[in-house]
Design a protein around this nucleic acid. Structure first.
Length: 602
DNA sequence: AGGAATATGAACTCACAC
DNA sequence: GTGTGAGTTCATATTCCT
């Protein structure tokens, strides 16, 4: 999603060197306003595990860190050393360092913890928006505890198959791991077996194209047609260098009754390249309409997975054409409830009265980061007012062009207006007032919202994870923005055990933290300011602390890709959009580290 | 100082006619 | 095949105004 340009820090080369050259231990950045941000290194932490009242106390701090998986003895020791008043981030930093040095599991390894209690009904934040009561849309698809071992086995087999694993490998894994093995254990086994086979065939990591620096620039990966041959289906073609956008832009399929009548548009299964398979799962997002060749490059880096292009106009009343590359299962998806109104009239009933018959729009265009000026709205009003009845065709065209360009709606006689920030929030699937208050300006609200996920769309894709992680997931959220991924998972009812979030903009981090607190999250929220802080060493520490990441999710900056940018639409190598390579690096690091851990546990 | 307002096209795709 | 026109787009730089 999201935004890397919300503040005044430029991503020019000098800054890159400056930031990456910082000592890795607890760097402290200072904002232009002189305010010190202490969320580096260990990150700012929010945890509402027990008492919701604010204010640190020693015992509470101890419980807090113990709940994160550190041993009580270690936590006590570190707090004693640092002092109770020291920042939580400093304590976490020390804990991470110690736990790495000790290399011995604490008294409370995360796996030994009781599952977090995830009580949706206790949330008062949603104002009844999230109807997560028993829904026949998905309950039948869930994996339920079943006493019948044979049907249990079938379900696991089916799940594995749906996740893209070959049936034979799934059967072998179930035989070897025993009847009580969880899906996660089974997928671990299959992945380890695949890795072992790859090594046997002298086809190990080295084969995987690596990113290399060339003249200070990132070098593009070679195509490996032998790994993932050219293909063609449903309008998405790899025609030499260009991936074409599908029409209609419905991805691998939409929920039932979402506008797909042609069943051939629904993809039942796909074959992921072996090196792309999870765990961890990952999910990458960016604008669909990029300069030529960008999605080819992105796909090449992300294990040659075919992008899923979806227009969110099928999920809400506004268009949002985006590409998603992920290794999620695509079976058993279900939509968020309640389903959003999908026409302007239904979403904004009050506009109906003023909507002229010659404005035939039923959907809004893409919600962007800026809104129409008052002067433009005035020009439109004056242009129409000159005529008693229906304005002439030339005026209609002028008005309609501007309305389309600026997403204006009719709010009075001859009066058009841009959407209010709270209306944008709801369209994008966020709770009303999600970005309101806490010191964020109206301009920044539009900007952050314009850079965000459409929650219903993303949630539909992520819904396949729900049966796989009934006890919750650990998420690495990159370029988190205002937390579209977190909100989507929450609305799906997937408990958030740990969220490590990286977001450069302070106002956005504040939005996510407020949401986290208001929704009484039981897990841990750790945040970082810069993706470059997540070095391989740091990722190892985080993985060892939290027991690995189940999902790495994020959309890297689109600034240099988006069509609205008149100034610096420089493509993937642009100042901001180049951070895509950081996304790839981190996903690849996490995959390799977790594969190593699986190997050494065996 | 900082928020708000304002002006600023190009690149791309698609449909259609020829 | 080529040409043309219509439609769409997670934005930025500058100025204005408290």
């Amino acid at each position: 999603m999201e935004n890397s340009d919300c503040d005044s820090i430029d991503w020019n080369t000098d800054d890159e060197l400056e930031i990456s050259g910082l000592p890795s231990s607890r760097p402290t950045l200072t904002t232009p306003g002189g305010e010190t941000i202490t969320c580096n290194g260990g990150g700012t932490i929010t945890c509402n595990g027990e008492d919701s009242s604010a204010g640190p106390s020693s015992s509470k701090l101890v419980r807090h860190f113990v709940s994160m998986g550190f041993s009580q003895a270690l936590v006590t020791k570190v707090i004693d050393e640092n002092g109770e008043d020291s920042a939580e981030s400093a304590i976490l930093e020390t804990l991470l360092t110690y736990s790495t040095l000790e290399n011995t599991p604490g008294d409370n390894s995360p796996e030994e913890h009781p599952p977090v209690d995830f009580d949706l009904s206790s949330s008062e934040y949603d104002e009844g928006l999230y109807d997560l009561s028993d829904s026949d849309c998905w309950s039948e698809n869930e994996i339920e505890e079943d006493t019948d071992s044979s049907s249990e086995k079938d379900k696991k087999l089916r799940s594995l198959k749906n996740m893209g694993y070959p049936v034979e490998e799934a059967e072998i894994a179930m035989e070897r791991c025993g009847p009580g093995a969880s899906i996660l254990e089974l997928t671990d086994f299959i992945c380890a077996a695949q890795l072992a086979r790859a090594e046997d065939a002298n086809f190990p990591y080295e084969v995987k194209p690596k990113v290399k620096l060339e003249n200070g620039r990132l070098k593009k990966r070679k195509m490996y047609p032998e790994l993932y041959g050219r293909k063609k289906h449903r309008g998405i073609e790899e025609d030499g260098e260009t991936i074409r956008l599908p029409k209609p832009m419905v991805g691998f399929g939409l929920p039932p009754d979402f506008g797909i009548r042609d069943s051939s548009l629904v993809i039942q299964k796909r074959n992921l390249p072996e090196e792309a398979m999870g765990p961890p799962y990952f999910y990458y997002e960016n604008v669909a309409l990029t300069p030529k060749g960008v999605w080819d490059t992105i796909s090449r880096f992300l294990y040659n997975i075919e992008p899923e292009f979806v227009d969110s106009k099928y999920f809400c009343a506004a268009a949002r054409k985006r590409g998603y590359i992920h290794n999620l299962p695509i079976h058993n998806r279900f939509p968020l409830l309640p389903i959003q109104p999908r026409t302007i009239n239904e979403a904004f009933p009050l506009t109906k009265r003023w909507w002229p018959s010659w404005d035939t729009r039923t959907k809004l265009n893409c919600l962007q980061t800026a809104i129409a000026s008052a002067r433009l709205q005035d020009r439109i009003r004056k242009a129409i007012e000159k005529y008693d009845g229906e304005p002439p065709a030339i005026v209609q065209k002028y008005v309609l062009d501007e309305c389309r360009k600026w997403n204006l709606v009719w709010v009075g006689r001859n009066k058009v207006a841009p959407l209010e920030p709270d209306e944008v929030e709801v369209l994008l699937g966020f709770p009303k007032n999600h970005t309101r208050g806490g010191g964020i300006s109206r301009t920044d609200r539009y900007k952050s919202l314009g850079n965000s996920f459409q929650v219903d769309t993303v949630a539909y894709h992520l819904s396949a994870l729900k049966p796989l992680y009934p006890k919750g997931i650990n998420v690495l959220s990159l370029f988190s923005g205002i937390g579209g991924a977190e909100v989507a998972l929450y609305k799906l009812g997937i408990p958030l055990k740990t969220v490590v979030s990286v977001e450069k903009s302070e106002v956005n981090r504040n939005v996510v933290r407020s949401w986290w607190e208001q929704t009484n999250q039981q897990g841990n929220l750790v945040d970082y300011e810069d993706v470059r802080q997540l070095t391989a060493d740091r990722l190892e520490q985080l993985i060892d602390t939290f027991g690995g990441f189940d999902l790495v999710i994020g959309g890297s900056p689109c600034n240099n890709l988006a069509g609205s940018n008149r100034v610096s639409r420089d493509g993937l190598e642009g100042d901001q959009s180049i951070l895509f390579y950081e996304y790839f690096r981190i996903v690849d690091d996490v995959k390799n580290i977790m594969a190593e851990r699986r190997g050494s546990n065996r």
